[in-house]
């Protein structure tokens, strides 16, 4: 199932399928290691609900939901 990254719950994992958007933000997202095929896991949300902490390539990265929106991931085995 394909979802936008901001819709994943903490603990869920997905494989990046596509990165929409453009410009500096998209480039920065890719520079940080989020490219097609990479596995990304939601660790937790900030206490106020946004931004969100992710695990990618064995390190921890934060994105606001509005930035995560551009990232489409495929998620296996929905509960």
């Amino acid at each position: 199932m394909e979802l936008q990254l901001n819709n994943l719950e903490p603990g869920q994992k997905g494989v990046v399928v596509e990165i929409k958007g453009s410009g500096a933000t998209r480039r920065r997202i890719m520079d940080m290691g989020i490219v097609r095929g990479s596995l990304i896991k939601v660790i937790r949300r900030a206490p106020l609900g946004d931004p969100v902490e992710f695990e990618i390539r064995d390190y921890n990265l934060t994105l606001r939901k509005r930035e995560a929106e551009h990232i489409y991931v495929s998620v296996e085995g929905q509960q």
């Binding site: 933000t25 920065r28 940080m32 390190y59 921890n60 990265l61 934060t62 994105l63 606001r64 930035e67």
Partner: peptide, 17 residues
């Protein structure tokens, strides 16, 4: 200031912890 002289959005929060 955000609405007038320094228009725009805050920088994205793509940050390493």
């Amino acid at each position: 200031l955000r609405k007038t002289l320094l228009k725009g959005e805050p920088a994205p929060f793509i940050m390493e912890l």
